[in-house]
């Protein structure tokens, strides 16, 4: 428990480290999700047109 608390607080500098990690994770997620959404959109459009 103490280890996790130390890890989160990091002598008062944890906010800087965790913020950077959060930014990194958000950017990576967006770079994964946006092309994935494009592929899904093309597949959906194709399935709609083939149903018609």
């Amino acid at each position: 428990m103490e280890f996790i608390q130390d890890l989160l607080i990091m002598d008062g500098q944890g906010k800087y480290v965790w913020f950077v990690l959060l930014v990194f994770l958000i950017v990576i997620f967006l770079n994964y999700y946006l092309p994935y959404r494009t592929i899904r959109k093309i597949q959906e459009e194709n399935s709609q047109s083939s149903e018609e």
């Binding site: 990091m10 002598d11 500098q13 480290v17 950077v20 990690l21």
Partner: peptide, 13 residues
Amino acid sequence: GEVYRIIFVHVPS
């Protein structure tokens, strides 16, 4: 101190 740990994201990026 601890803030140097940003290096693990900053340098590779």
